[in-house]
Design a protein around this nucleic acid. Structure first.
Length: 253
DNA sequence: CGCCAGGTGGGAT
DNA sequence: ATCCCACATGGC
């Protein structure tokens, strides 16, 4: 939190931002599942957006884990087509990943980018979730345990905790930093580390996974529609922001 | 064509 | 602790 900014002010800003985003975009219903989720072996008929059915099976949960890795620094559509190819190849459980060669995995997930690295990452998370029952709802791994896995950093760890296991751990991504920076809630998107930004949300909000789920999803939707790298400010529902029509302005009071 | 996309790990300073 | 870079495809 910036110097001189009261915690109650910070809390109001975070709450107001959520209200504006929810009002503008409506409930997002994350996590998005692969486009054919609902066919055999997968739970949830729905698909992103706004048709979320929370995962009940190990396969559904592990698909979220794989999706969280595949979408690292790449678009969801690219990650999703990789998920589709994994599903079509019958790869939906850690054991399926383990019995697939690294090279074949890389070929299947080519569209997600960084495919050699990500093939290794899938191997690593498959090893992490190897134990029977490790994907059970009540067997959520600890954050430290996730972070100790090669290929899982703080954002991926929190995505897995929140969206696969419903543990209320707020997900901070590049979009979150950009939005908080532009609205003046943080100084700039480099100043604060991951845990600092996460703490802003944890301090301001009740610790509820449904709320954290929606808030992060709304930030992503908002970042795609308006708060892009090159801002699209026409029709932007966020009232306090130092940009208008792509031009930097002085921070609002 | 250049920029951007729901990061992470490793190495140099 | 903090920069800097490799990793790579696809959409606009």
């Amino acid at each position: 939190m910036g110097p001189g900014v009261e915690a109650s002010t910070q809390k109001r800003r975070i709450e107001a931002l959520y209200a504006q985003l929810l009002s503008a975009y409506g409930p997002q219903g994350w996590w998005p599942l692969s486009s054919r989720a609902g066919k055999r072996g997968f739970d949830g008929r729905g698909y992103h957006p706004r048709a979320y059915v929370h995962p009940r099976t190990a396969g559904g949960r592990f698909e979220i884990v794989m999706g969280a890795v595949l979408t690292q620094s790449s678009s969801w559509t690219n990650a999703e087509s990789a998920l589709d190819r994994l599903r079509n190849a019958g790869i939906r459980l850690p054991s399926d990943v383990r019995s697939c060669t690294r090279g074949r995995l890389a070929r299947l997930i080519r569209s997600s980018g960084y495919f050699n690295q990500k093939a290794r990452k899938l191997k690593e998370v498959a090893a992490l979730f190897r134990a029977a029952g490790s994907l059970a709802r009540e067997a959520a791994p600890s954050r430290v345990e996730l972070l100790s896995c090669w290929g899982i950093g703080p954002e991926t760890a929190d995505s897995i905790l929140l969206y696969a296991f419903h543990v209320p751990s707020f997900v901070v991504d590049a979009y979150t930093r950009r939005l908080l920076s532009r609205t003046g809630i943080i100084e700039d998107d480099r100043q604060d580390g991951y845990d600092d930004v996460q703490r802003i949300f944890h301090d301001a909000l009740p610790s509820a996974h449904e709320l954290f789920n929606e808030y992060h999803a709304l930030i992503v939707e908002h970042a795609k529609q308006h708060c892009r790298a090159r801002p699209v400010c026409t029709g932007c529902p966020v009232r306090v922001c130092r940009y208008r029509d792509g031009l930097p302005r002085a921070a609002s009071p």
